[in-house]
Amino acid sequence: MSLLTVSGVTVRRGGRAILREVSASFSAGQFVAVIGGNGAGKSTLLSVLAGLLKPDQGEARLDGQPIGRFDRKALARRRAYLPQNPRCDWPISVERLVALGLTPTLPAFGRLTADVQVRVDRAVEACDLASQRDQAATTLSGGELARAMLARAMVGDPEVLIVDEPMAGLDPRHALDTAGRLQGLAASGKLVIAAVHDLTLAARFASHVLGMREGQVVALGPMATTLTSVLLHDIFDVEACVSGEGATATVDYVAGAPKGV
């Protein structure tokens, strides 16, 4: 059964439709890579899926329930959302930043309990941040901050994880680590939906792909059968070559190929 669906979702901003009649459904255990050019509506779709943006038409449903009807905290416990280029405004420690991911489960007052500390420790270790644990979040490098934010999103062990470009700005090792971690989460039965620009990483780690163009879904399906050079041409207007499958898949662009060849 589908865990998360959108049906007939249209979002307009300033007279322009950013999403047009988008319908899609996602199940637990999938790692869906959302791909598309700049301005294709990826981030907007992720916001709608996270229940943070109310579409002008249509709706998103989690477990068959309209996502707008969920209690904010109850929803926050079940799905985590990480926007593009997240930042931290105060120089709080990395450990504290990660603990913020547990906000919906914390009481209104009081200190962190031992149980919370254990979960924070686990997330900090998992995202390779042990040596930055006490560092101020504002002094982290871009890649370190991105990892800290991912740890923040994962610490609450959500059923649904929606992340906007989690691998942007990461060095190859940490990009691979992150993609592998998202794959692992999906393998353990979670639903992971991530906007991804690195198509090779997407092809190797994601189980499904959702291709977008001009606010519409062009394709949604299993990675191996859906990510083809034809699809990439449809989405990006470039000649691309998809070779291999699974862990060895590679997506190459053919540079300078004239249009219509």
Binding site: A76, P83, D89, L100, T103
Partner: peptide
């Protein structure tokens, strides 16, 4: 108090945290 903590991550993340 708790809401102010969550807001350190910006409005979008704070909202996603309930």
């Amino acid at each position: 108090a708790r809401s102010l903590d969550a807001l350190a991550l910006g409005e979008a993340q704070a909202e996603s945290l309930g």
